[in-house]
Design a protein around this nucleic acid. Structure first.
Length: 564
DNA sequence: GCCGTTTTCGGCCCGACTGTTTTCAGTCG
């Protein structure tokens, strides 16, 4: 699949056109097309071969030609033309807070600044202040942006941001200056990584709320502070935005602040088509307030179903909501068990009994202990004798446990596609998870296909093998894997570890659409990691997953019937 | 450059905040 490459090409063209001073709508057009290609499940190359590029949303004659040229020749004439006369470091400057295309252009033309490094030097030597429109304050702000960029080094994992956001919500509630307090933004949408934290509050005393917010103990510096809105950096480098509103406009503001931006833009467009106006202050018809107290009422007034935050990504949710065809998404409370976790028998930090007790407190009916088995010494994998001893232990605990414990194992798929444990041993386990851990460059797709053909393999664990902050998705033919999963009745997993979330949202959706069954597991290596389940459910929801698509929403007997 | 329940031409989301300006451009979300 070359979708990501094509999207990157279109984004880069957009960035360069913007710096060049191209009219805004052209730039927007390229970004929209890039987004379509980036998030669609079909292979862009296949669409091109069918001659149907122009059927894609936001792709017309011009952009279709650009894409076709790129797919044909492996490089883009259009992009090469644009790059002429532009040093490669220019677009990097767009990553800095407070720097947009106009400033980049200005820096380059007036001061020959070609990179972030040049820019830093120019600020330190006070050269920027000589340019009309720029001043001393601008220099300081840019230096600070560069510092933050160095510190932050990209986006933060959802699983790490959620506790921080919850902490801030708790503080704001305790402050006495805010009545309703919510996390909005990409955290509310459950995106796997987040750029900043958005907090929304209603308050009778906005100035007090803002004051309290900008003086919280974790705040390192204040970026912006007005009567209704403020932004700060925490000591960790993370940016937090606060917006203060009245109760009346709470719903429309929550919508606005939740995003995605693209979803909001489309919603506003729909409002205009209906001769109304949508902003964070409500839905207005000739300046008369129509809706805004709740999100539900805004969607209703625009003739749509309520769209859950997790799917507000411009992936077809608007059309579905207009036709009343949104699925009822899975919820955390639907989960009845967790089918992947580790104990001291391999690389976990607690006993079977301790994990069972923790799971029991979450209200689960069953769990599956899936310690590593085979030859993976690095994960302290169990041998055949240990598997038998573990079985005896589990049987013993099950006699007095209020939660049913299954014995499973996580088995490595070797470089040649064979499993690391013999079928005689696998047969005796309740559930077998197979997954890639090593030799990730070697023909990953056929290794997974081979594993699925094994009648003992029930679940493919963390199928793509990615680690969000360290390792890219291994090269996989996901459509092939999904087809095979359907054919062999193999379950695909969403591993809910913060740095995995694997399958990701897009792949989950493709799998569910194809009729595959999903398991959402935490892969917990300690009791508190069982709480990652909510991240897995968020990812499933982002993939339009329903309760019935997920095997561990079923009671024990029905769940077992889903296995091979 | 794209697109059509207002349109095949003329629009394309909208408001807050900052820094530099004396009325606004640039940036952000």
């Amino acid at each position: 699949m070359k979708n990501q490459e094509v999207a990157a090409l279109l984004y880069e063209i957009a960035d360069l056109m913007e710096i060049k001073g191209e009219i805004a709508f052209k730039v927007i057009a390229y970004r929209r097309a890039a987004q379509t290609v980036e998030t669609m499940s079909k292979d862009v190359e296949a669409v091109w071969q069918e001659g149907k590029l122009e059927d894609l949303q936001g792709v017309g004659k011009g952009i279709a030609e650009t894409i076709a040229g790129f797919l044909e020749k492996g490089k883009s004439k259009h992009l090469d033309e644009l790059k002429k006369g532009f040093p490669p470091g220019l677009v990097d400057m767009l990553e800095l807070e407070g720097i947009g295309p106009k400033k980049v252009k200005l820096f380059y033309e007036k001061l020959k600044i070609k990179s972030i490094k040049d820019l830093e030097k120019a600020c330190k030597s006070g050269k920027l202040r000589n340019v009309p429109g720029l001043g001393e304050k601008t220099e300081q702000n840019i230096l600070q942006s560069i510092e933050h960029a160095k510190k932050r080094g990209g986006r933060m994992l959802l699983g790490y941001a959620v506790p921080i956001a919850e902490q801030i919500v708790a503080e704001m509630k305790k402050s006495g200056h805010a009545e309703r307090v919510n996390v909005a933004g990409s955290i509310r949408r459950g995106k796997e990584t987040i750029g900043d934290i958005d907090i929304l509050v209603t308050s009778e005393k906005p100035d007090k709320a803002i004051e309290f917010f900008t003086k919280m103990k974790d705040v390192a510096d204040v970026i912006a502070k007005g009567p209704t809105k403020a932004s700060v950096h925490l000591h960790s480098g993370l940016q937090v935005d606060l917006r203060v509103l009245t109760d009346k406009e709470y719903g429309s503001a929550l919508m606005y602040f939740t995003g995605s931006k693209e979803h909001n833009v489309e919603m506003r467009r729909i409002a205009i088509a209906k001769r109304m106006k949508l902003s964070e202050y409500g839905l207005l018809k000739s300046d008369k307030f129509v809706a805004g107290h709740t999100e539900e009422e805004v969607y209703k007034q625009l003739g749509m179903q309520f769209v859950p935050p997790e799917i507000r990504e411009m992936r077809g949710e608007i059309e579905a909501a207009q036709h009343g065809k949104l699925p009822k998404l899975i919820e955390l409370r639907d989960i009845r068990g967790d089918l992947q976790m580790h104990t001291k028998w391999s690389d976990g930090s607690n006993t079977v009994e301790e994990m069972a007790q923790a799971a029991s407190q979450l209200g689960y009916q069953y769990i599956c202990i899936t310690d590593h088995a085979g030859n993976m010494k690095i994960a302290n994998a169990m041998g055949q004798k240990e598997i038998e001893r573990q079985r005896a232990e589990i049987d013993k605990i099950n006699k007095h446990s209020d939660i049913h414990i299954l014995q499973g194992a996580e088995i490595d798929i070797r470089a040649d596609g064979r499993l690391d444990v013999s079928n005689d041993v696998l047969k005796k386990l309740d559930i077998v998870l197979a997954s890639l851990h090593s030799a990730l460059k070697k023909d990953n797709t056929s290794r997974i296909l081979a594993a699925m053909d094994n009648p003992n393999v029930d679940i493919i664990a963390h199928p793509s093998g990615r680690l969000i902050d360290r390792r890219e998705t291994v090269a996989l033919d996901m459509p092939k894997i999904i087809d095979k999963a359907k054919e062999t009745c193999t379950i695909l997993e969403i591993d809910a570890q913060p740095n995995r979330l694997d399958l990701n949202d897009v792949s989950v959706r493709a799998a569910v659409d194809a009729g595959c069954l999903i398991a959402i597991d935490t892969d917990a290596h300690a009791p508190d990691q069982l709480g990652f389940m909510k991240l897995g459910v968020l990812t499933a929801r982002r993939g339009w997953t329903k309760k019935e698509d997920v095997i561990n929403t079923r009671p024990l007997d029905k769940m077992l019937k889903c296995l091979k």
